[in-house]
Design a protein around this nucleic acid. Structure first.
Lengths: 237, 237
DNA sequence: GTCTGTGAAGCTCTTCACAGCG
DNA sequence: CGCTGTGAAGAGCTTCACAGAC
């Protein structure tokens, strides 16, 4: 399993640029995955700051708020172009917009959910997704008793609707919260219908379909990590 | 915020060693956090294999099953002592036991849950924790209407019971799934009562109490990472 | 003086490749 | 032969520290 971390294809500016500021829009070089994860954190804090009326912020202030070093913050931001003002720092609103555009959440993204067990229903009612730019529009389950019923405003579909609904809603992202059995089949079928990436809550390793991405969320593993740390480490991380 | 990743204090063997096999029990050197995360994955797969009756396995086989390189698997295992048999490979059952002991899940651990919203209730009904050695024994909420009611077999408590219940149940780990407001206060209070580590589902940065660990699970951030990848990268991760 | 952006150093994790064993 | 364990090399990420801007 060779990690195929090829360099980015040169991403041409596709969207209409309508910002009033001369903000750099797209990554100049390859942005590391660690950086991408931190970008989400930065954006959340920037949204809060913007909401509180803060216009400009210095790297050391924002860094302290999100818990990274100032150097790292500046490095992360520089990876897709520099736009800090030396006297006043970074424009809070503009930087938030730029990060949104880079991670692709400047427009609402339509998401599908597979599996309406306890976790699936909880994710469905979670309001946090909408405010971050994700909308669960379609839900699927294999359970005949659930198909046709409505959960949190969405009608539950059977797997046979994958081929019609995924293209119709232009779904690129799927959340997996089903039983492990048959999960690979669902993933392959969804990928064939056009889904490009999967957020997998099921504790089961998947064979990633070609051209797709899978991100794992393993809650038990996180607990085990904490268990290890409490046992073996002395101080905070 | 200097990352205080001091080297491990020499962990002396504390528990009574009762294994029948001459397996090394405790990390010889500092085990990296990445290794710890993978150990959870190895153990899950080893449990499955053991259940299927597999007795021995070679590094390249197990590596393929969990999606890492054979070299990495061997390196991970070697970080807490080597116990592979050159002819037959690794003893599946013994290695699972050893990993459990290292991450501290060879005995059931009692966990508290803070916040009984949608996500909290889903976590409460999730059966996967028990089989990995974690038991949610106590649940808390600030909502007066929930206090006293029973959810999935556990009576909901108010925060005023933290100081009595945490010591009584010897709770070391807490899961946070409440609203962001007042979360820091809850964490500080729980830490003072004896909780050592926190699994935080709330999208809010915490000041880690001294001597404690906080592990963040940010689902929206994961979606944003996928969104970025679909946009900018060409192939699978 | 302060702050940003960045070359360079430092550090950590991963992979290579091979000695040694069976 | 093939496999494990490991020194050494490689790759990637973080931090240092300073030039340049203000």
């Amino acid at each position: 399993m060779p990690p195929e971390e090829s360099e980015n294809p040169p991403v041409e500016s596709n969207a209409a640029v309508d910002t009033t500021q001369p903000s750099p829009a797209y990554p100049a070089k390859s942005v590391s995955l660690h950086t991408v994860e931190r970008l989400s954190v930065y954006r959340r804090m920037l949204d809060e700051l913007s909401h509180d009326g803060v216009e400009y912020i210095h790297s050391h202030e924002l860094a302290a708020l999100v818990g990274v070093t100032p150097a790292q913050l500046r490095r992360d931001l520089a990876s897709f172009g520099s736009f800090g003002n030396i006297a006043r720092g970074y424009n809070v609103y503009q930087m938030g917009q730029t990060i949104s555009r880079i991670i692709g959440t400047d427009k609402l993204q339509t998401v599908a959910l597979f599996g309406l067990g306890d976790l699936g229903r909880a994710l469905l009612s979670y309001r946090g997704f909408e405010e971050r730019g994700f909308h669960i529009a379609v839900v699927f389950d294999i359970n005949q008793e659930k198909i046709g019923r409505v959960f949190a405003g969405r009608r539950c579909h059977g797997l046979d609707d994958i081929e019609t609904l995924v293209p119709d809603f232009e779904i690129r992202i799927a959340i997996l919260s089903s039983r492990p059995e048959g999960l690979q089949f669902v993933v392959d079928r969804a990928a064939a219908a056009g889904v490009r990436s999967f957020l997998n809550f099921v504790p089961k390793r998947l064979t990633t379909p070609h051209g797709c991405f899978v991100e794992y969320v393993d809650i038990s593993a996180k607990l085990e990590k904490l268990s290890f740390l409490s046992q073996h480490r002395a101080r905070q991380e």
